[in-house]
Nucleic acid binder design. Structure first.
Length: 933
RNA sequence: GCCGGGAUGGCGGAAUUGGUAGACGCGCCGGACUCAAAAUCCGGUGCUGGUAACAGUGUGAGGGUUCGAGUCCCUCUCCCGGCACCA
């Protein structure tokens, strides 16, 4: 055994051992329970960053822990290889996206391997390879035939200079990132997946996901956004025709307060109204400027213009003006909304802005606790209505005492609350439910509306006008329309040798790609040149991992064994989109029969044997761990024109004051100072990414893994610090040194006969030794609990505490004692096993070196010696009025009266009591006594 | 703007259910070893006052519930993630 801890050597040896033994090759059958542990696969951006190290270390800790707990573990890895950055890199470096991607994959695979992850590499998946995306195309054709994929137009960001569609990310302050041109909305035809058809199930099944964080489920619920409302129409006559303007509202109780209707700029009514109306045409044109991102639309200034058109109120027949609003989106719902300024905040501010041109607002709801019969109305200075409760108007404090007074000059949340109808004719006095029922019934009787359940969730547009993605397997034929590519012609292979220009898709300029014949009529036809959203690949890779090499379908019967994923680990930023799409795809694949016969009723009727029923895999991920980001300090210098030049933290020396507070920073290369910026998410743009390779090279993979686990709980944001890395390395070196200096004694223990077993000597320990032993098991108990709740940073601290306890063992007795050797042998085996999921190389090496066995992974997980935890005496806290005033050692079963007397006798308590009697004494068994005076 | 989180010493963080705030580590200070330094080992370290014992104070801000609040409730501030074409 080497005297010094040399991670480079031992890590290479350990990795070779795992490779040769095929340790991590997962068996598709086993008597052990299966544990499919999946970390979100990386986009091959070039190099590993700390976020990857964190994600994959967390997954590996879980995998190794479960393996030692007796599970048949499968941990795969692959590459989310299609995507925009490859095209950007191609533009910048003149390298084809494919070549760039494959070379990145090679670099990152090597880096991942050097981390010592327990990955079954025989299952590796690369989404940009035809053997993967072929099956995605296959599923596309099935969904297309089922009507689950359809075509419609949708808005995209259009760069009028580069003549290209931009991703939301590429739109900065309303301009194209390369051209700087003002971005426009443009409607183009796209394929959509009917995720809304599964909205109800996607929502309902969240309840069965007990292993998911509540916050993620809440976000998904809100995203799906099931609402109960009324869809109704405003009839109108135009160009001699009767027609209806449809809207949807969840506040049908406020319909009597409608003052206008707002439609999207692209709405047919707007288009019609703009004919011969130059001002409106210009306004509609203006509405098309800017991006399509919801965040931008929600934060932009709400503007509108009267179309001059009027529609009839469906219940009163009164004419209602129609406006164009830049905040109304075509394609979301009806592309039109009713406006009730008195009971909707957005409508309120909009109508205040255009008050002069709009009809007066009308309150139709008062708070539920008001006496409707006594409500009086008056007008304020501006003419806006005031409602007065008859109990006496308190005009001085309108907001503070709203039960008396409501004033529609200033917005209040009260306006939006459900209450009682007023000013609503026959609906006066009804509450929300009654009013909605009555109004919906009246609308239905007129054929102008009905109750409707609606979802916020929209169908998933999957067409991308980009090159580096999975080709959409559709052939456009003038005679037969959109024809799916037949199975035998799949895959539609993406040509890899192309030149990227940044203007439009290269595929659309490649006749050799798009010129084809129609599979139905055999005539000349054109292949679709759009590719699929890269979220499609990441929606089913977890299933493909179960069936490596399968050439007959997306998955084979092995999927039934492995699915669902038992533990999924990945960044919180994927809480909605990726996780929702993957859940959706799982249901699509289930309903395509890929997970076995899902028609459970017919199966059981036929066979009568429940045991033969295939399991229904409704959800892909049974347990989810959402990991926090890795952040780092930023440093910069002001360059020309105030442009910031970002400097990597690795090139900076930080100066601190006497108490360690940073006071300045200097660039190492020139010794001149740099500005300390904020602490932010590691990114290329702020140049604050830390390359884990530097740490692995200098300290080893175990140190990198240990630190990243130790630094913060998995779900929290993690701030990077190099100083902490050295601390982690110091600890591992102490473990090594401890092993080196105690090797002989441990080996002697291992060679002893059964009569002289470690256990027999543990029985013979003296009280001091037993106390140390007890401490160690207290720590182990906490560590096992923390593993269960996925809080690994405290497991790392537990390892440090156990090493300290072992060092203490040696310090308190003369060396050479059999009990000491036994305690160390036993204790160190606990430490090595507890530490092994986090730092697998050093623990594997020492496990072998000290003769514990060949493979620490096949050792049983250390369990707590409960008997050792029992104490005769415990420490109690003495409080006076809740403040700590003393401590007391008492017998563990002392009764309350004894405890009270002991507490009262405490000097500090006596002093504070000063002869008075205590008002109350609270005894919390096993914890404290609080004397109230 | 909407949805979901977060805020604890100089720093990362700990504190299962309301019950000793600051475990463990980093940094810093002091000591040992050394010609010296590095490394290592030992001790100290929330803040304020005090030689000290000790006292006061303290978990983003303000209020509340409770014998007792980092933890529960209300109001607010700031920060982060997502918002459907970044992945």
């Amino acid at each position: 055994m080497q005297q010094d801890y040399k991670p480079k050597n031992i890590e290479a040896v350990a990795q070779l051992y795992w490779n040769e033994k095929l340790t991590f090759r997962a068996a598709d059958q086993s008597e052990k329970p299966k544990y499919y542990c999946l970390s979100m696969f990386p986009y091959p951006s070039g190099k590993l960053h700390m976020g990857h190290v964190r994600n994959y270390t967390i997954g590996d800790v879980l995998s190794r822990y479960h393996r030692m707990k007796g599970f048949n573990v499968m941990q795969p890895m692959g590459w989310d290889a299609f995507g925009l950055p490859a095209e950007n890199a191609a533009l910048a470096n003149n390298v084809p996206p494919a070549a760039w991607t494959y070379s990145n994959i090679d670099v990152m695979r090597t880096q991942l391997r050097s981390l010592g992850l327990g990955v079954d590499w025989s299952r590796e998946v690369t989404t940009c390879k035809p053997d993967y995306y072929r099956w995605e195309q296959w599923l596309f054709t099935r969904l297309f035939q089922k009507g689950l994929i359809y075509k419609k137009t949708s808005s995209v960001n259009w760069d009028p200079v580069d003549h290209t569609v931009l991703a939301n990310e590429q739109v900065i302050d309303g301009r194209g990132w390369r051209s700087g041109a003002l971005v426009e909305k443009r409607d183009i035809p796209m394929y959509f997946m009917r995720i809304t058809q599964y909205a109800e199930e996607l929502l309902a099944d969240l309840d069965q996901l007990e292993g998911w964080p509540e916050q993620v489920k809440t976000m998904q619920r809100n995203w799906i956004g099931k609402s109960y409302g009324v869809r109704f129409a405003f009839p109108y006559q135009l160009d001699g025709k009767q027609d209806k303007l449809w809207v949807y509202t969840t506040r049908a109780d406020t319909i009597m307060g409608v003052t206008f209707v707002a439609v999207a700029a692209e709405h047919p009514l707007a288009t019609r109204a703009a004919q011969g109306n130059a001002a409106l045409t210009a306004f509609i044109e203006e509405c098309k400027h800017g991006g399509v991102a919801e965040a931008d639309i929600a934060t932009m200034e709400k503007r509108g213009m009267d179309t001059g058109l009027k529609v009839s109120h469906p219940l009163t027949d009164k004419l209602v003006p129609v406006w164009v609003g830049n905040y109304v989106l075509m394609g979301y719902g009806e592309g039109a909304v009713m406006a009730v300024p008195t009971h909707d905040e957005r409508d309120f501010y909009f109508s205040q802005k255009y008050a002069a041109q709009l009809p007066p607002v009308k309150p139709v709801i008062v708070p539920a606790n008001w006496d409707v019969s006594k409500v009086g109305e008056t007008t304020s200075k501006s003419g806006a209505p005031r409602l007065l409760n008859a109990t006496g108007a308190d005009i001085s404090t309108p907001m503070g005492n709203y039960s008396n007074f409501l004033d529609w000059e200033q917005w209040s949340e009260i306006f939006e609350q459900k209450g009682i109808c007023i000013n609503s004719g026959k609906y006066d006095g009804l509450n929300y439910d009654q009013a909605v029922d009555a109004i919906a019934a009246d609308l239905a009787a007129k054929g102008l509306g009905e109750k409707k359940v609606q979802f916020r969730l929209r169908d998933w547009g999957i067409s991308r006008q980009r090159y580096w993605g999975c080709p959409i397997p559709i052939i456009h034929c003038v005679n037969c329309g959109d024809v799916p590519v037949p199975d035998e012609q799949l895959p539609v292979v993406l040509p890899e040798n192309v030149t990227i220009t940044g203007a439009g898709s290269p595929l659309a300029k490649m006749p050799e790609f798009y010129e084809t014949t129609c599979p139905q009529c055999g005539g000349a036809a054109k292949r679709e040149t759009d590719t699929m959203d890269t979220f499609v690949e990441s929606s089913w890779y977890y299933a493909r991992y179960t069936s490596p090499g399968c050439t007959t379908g997306m998955v084979d019967e092995r999927a039934q064994y492995w699915l669902p994923v038992d533990q999924y680990v990945g960044g919180i930023e994927h809480a909605i989109l990726h996780l929702l799409y993957a859940r959706f795809f799982n249901k699509l694949m289930r309903d395509a029969g890929l997970f076995g016969d899902t028609d459970l009723s017919s199966t059981s009727q036929k066979t009568g044997e429940l045991a033969l029923r295939p399991k229904s895999i409704d959800e892909p991920f049974a347990n989810l761990l959402t990991q926090g980001m890795v952040i780092a300090p930023t440093f910069f210098r002001e360059g020309a024109a105030g442009k910031k030049l970002w400097i990597n933290p690795a090139e900076v020396d930080i100066e601190t004051d006497s108490r360690g507070r940073p006071v300045g920073a200097k660039l190492r290369s020139d010794g001149q100072s740099v500005v300390i910026g904020g602490t932010e998410k590691m990114s290329k743009s702020k140049n604050n990414g830390v390359d884990p390779q530097v740490i692995i090279d200098q300290f080893g993979a175990d140190t990198a893994r240990f630190f990243i686990i130790f630094a913060a709980p998995p779900e929290q944001t993690l701030e990077w610090s190099d100083a902490g890395v050295e601390g982690a390395f110091r600890f591992l070196r102490r473990v090594w040194n401890f092993a080196y200096s105690n090797k002989k004694e441990i080996e002697v223990c291992h060679s002893r006969s059964k009569q002289e077993s470690v256990e027999s000597y543990l029985q013979a320990m003296n009280n001091e030794q037993k106390e140390v032993y007890r401490e160690m098991h207290v720590v182990l108990k906490q560590a096992n609990f923390d593993l269960q709740r996925l809080q690994f940073n405290t497991v790392a601290s537990a390892c440090m505490k156990i090493l300290k306890a072992l060092e203490q063992q040696i310090a308190i007795v003369t060396p050479g004692m059999n009990t000491t050797a036994a305690a160390i042998t036993n204790g160190f085996s606990i430490l090595l096993r507890l530490l092994s999921p986090i730092a697998p190389h050093i623990t594997q090496t020492l496990w072998q070196e000290l003769g514990y066995g060949d493979d620490v992974l096949s050792a049983p997980w250390p369990e707590v010696d409960e008997a050792a935890l029992i104490q005769d005496e415990i420490e109690l806290i003495i409080q006076v009025n809740g403040k700590l005033r003393g401590k007391l050692r008492v017998a563990k079963d002392a009764d309350h009266d004894t405890l009270k007397q002991l507490a009262m006798a405490c000097p500090s308590v006596e002093k504070l009591l000063a002869g008075q009697a205590a008002k109350k004494i609270i005894v919390v068994p096993g914890r404290l006594i609080n004397v109230v005076i």
